[in-house]
């Protein structure tokens, strides 16, 4: 039997308080992005889209957005390629060697972004690599690869070794086995991992701050604006990013729900079959 907490007034108040703590600031940010005046605090004095117009017309914001998108897409792609290769290699390496490789690939997770930023910056300047969006992509890939690695490895480990033996037995070379047996089964998960890499890269600040050259990603643009003026245009940018993120998460959620429904249908068919 499931244990249920008794519904009491203090429990209810704590719950409401916690939820308010999480969502009221978000709500205020969104609300004041539609503010008619340049005040950031109540009272609310009328609705307007002026800050959205202003932000979308701002070249700095637009450039920042495109830089961020470029960096995030490139990071997702490189992470997809290298992360998949690493996870595949580890999942097919038996015993202690496999575990050792896995630990090495995961280690960067424990590294603070600050240290990673400093380390990469000194590496790039030592090797005389000029800072650009390319160095940002490299830095982001290092940063998100471990997260992707975990996701990819879980999916790859689920594939039964006997299936690969069966494929080999039917004449499939290692490359063919990867393309026709493994990839079709793990592709949805790998793409979800790449989407995660995209999202993390898109709003990454600390590491980017160290290794970027003359250009600016959107988080850097917001940061520099904040130091100059504080008006609802910041709220408008934040709200836009929030909506974008929400849309992405929603798409991912619907997609995974569909996968889950299909899995359940198959499992049911199996029981009945």
């Amino acid at each position: 039997m499931q244990y249920q907490t008794r519904r009491s007034i203090p429990t209810l108040l704590t719950t409401i308080g916690a939820l308010a703590f999480l969502f009221v600031p978000l709500f205020i940010v969104i609300l004041f992005s539609f503010h008619a005046t340049d005040a950031l605090t109540p009272p609310f004095e009328g609705v307007s889209l002026r800050w959205y117009r202003e932000v979308l017309a701002d070249d700095a914001v637009r450039d920042g957005l495109f830089t961020s998108l470029r960096v995030a897409v490139l990071t997702a792609v490189t992470t997809l390629i290298f992360g998949t290769a690493a996870a595949y290699g580890v999942s097919r390496t038996a015993g202690r060697a496999g575990a050792a490789y896995a630990t090495l690939f995961l280690l960067p997770i424990a590294m603070p972004g600050l240290i990673l930023g400093v380390a990469l910056l000194s590496f790039f300047s030592n090797r005389s690599i000029s800072l650009s969006t390319l160095t940002v992509v490299i830095a982001h890939t290092v940063f998100v690869a471990p997260v992707f690695f975990i996701v990819a490895r879980t999916a790859l480990d689920r594939i039964d070794e006997a299936q690969l033996e069966a494929a080999a037995d039917l004449g499939a070379t290692p490359g063919y086995r990867f393309r026709k047996v493994i990839l079709p089964q793990v592709l949805p998960v790998l793409l979800a991992g790449a989407a995660m890499a995209f999202v993390i890269s898109f709003d990454e600040f600390i590491v980017t701050f160290f290794v970027i050259g003359n250009e600016s990603t959107l988080p850097l643009v917001i940061f520099s604006r904040l130091r100059r003026t504080i008006d609802p245009s910041i709220n408008a940018i934040s709200s836009l990013l929030l909506f974008l993120n929400l849309a992405l998460w929603l798409a991912a959620l619907l997609y995974s729900l569909r996968l889950e429904a299909r899995r359940r249908r198959d499992a049911l068919a199996q029981v009945q079959g």
Binding site: D160, A162, Q163, E165, A166, A167, A168, D169, L170, G171, A172, T173, V181, P184, Q185
Partner: peptide, 18 residues
């Protein structure tokens, strides 16, 4: 294995689920 003209049926089904 992939170059041998022999084929195998395994203990557990190894059908490709996709």
């Amino acid at each position: 294995a992939h170059k041998r003209p022999v084929n195998m049926v395994f203990q557990q089904s190894t059908l490709f689920p996709h």
